[in-house]
Design a protein around this nucleic acid. Structure first.
Lengths: 136, 136
DNA sequence: TTGAAACGCGTACAACTGTACGGCTAGAAT
DNA sequence: ATTCTAGCCGTACAGTTGTACGCGTTTCAA
């Protein structure tokens, strides 16, 4: 298991965009980022370089254009990031965060249904002896 | 609303501990931190100073000892932090994070029950016209 | 074919972070 | 009274982050 430096906040956004649109040139990535936040082209470029250095992305020159692709999968990055946050801000307990999200962030009616399914699924896998140990 | 600099990861841990034990001297805070992580006294001290500078804590000299107290409430800090994370890593959508937490982090049987209650409560307040708009 | 637009790449730089040392001093122990 | 201890405070320092400029070069349009 590699211990790469965590993504910075700025890099996270670029990572997310990159997962979304798939391998792309800086230009395209920048445009995608722009759709949700004002941000200089060169800044995105720097983030990408740093992401590659940290091992979160790869790139290759395609003619004159450098194409970046995500290397780490969202799942993994999200796990690492969230685990860290939960550890630091919630002392390792998951529920307070879940509670916060449900109570404070507004969940649409549609999502409530899904939520219920999720809980049901959890309940089942729990009844027949879990492989996934509660982490705290 | 003040826009204070965000807490750094290290500061977050100290903040959490400080909420937990209430106003205390650096020594006590350090000891509490030590219970979960190796960390130098002076480091904690620096974090506290910085937290005060950023507006997350206050302090006063009590004799020779400086007593630190949390200034920002957990609720608020958690909201700020989580909102930011959700924005950056999940493009502002709450559900993917909730899903991740429920599916990947292991929820104990006890918590499943609570979770169900939470969802029910949500459902109710949703039926009788919410004041809390879904945030996405 | 010549100038403009686009791009990679090196570089910059201040602010923030993680982590800690060491001097000074008030109170405790001898 | 002298020394030891603990605590505050200033300071440090390398690494990270946010943000970007500008050079050199390629390509495309005029």
């Amino acid at each position: 298991m590699v211990i790469r430096p965590a993504l910075s906040k700025g890099e996270m956004e670029v990572a997310r965009v990159l997962w979304e649109i798939g391998p792309a040139a800086v230009r395209a990535i920048h445009e995608a980022v722009l759709k949700e936040r004002e941000c200089d082209f060169a800044t995105v470029q720097t983030y990408l370089r740093r992401m590659e250095a940290k091992g979160y992305a790869t790139s290759k020159l395609e003619g004159r254009v450098r194409i970046y692709a995500a290397k780490a999968r969202p799942r993994t990055v999200i796990r690492e990031t969230v685990d860290d946050l939960v550890e630091r801000l919630f002392g390792g307990e998951t529920m307070p965060l879940v509670r916060h999200l449900i109570e404070e962030r507004g969940i649409g009616a549609k999502d409530i249904a899904e939520l219920r399914k999720l809980v049901d699924a959890l309940d089942n896998s729990d009844h027949q002896e879990d492989r996934k140990e509660p982490r705290k």
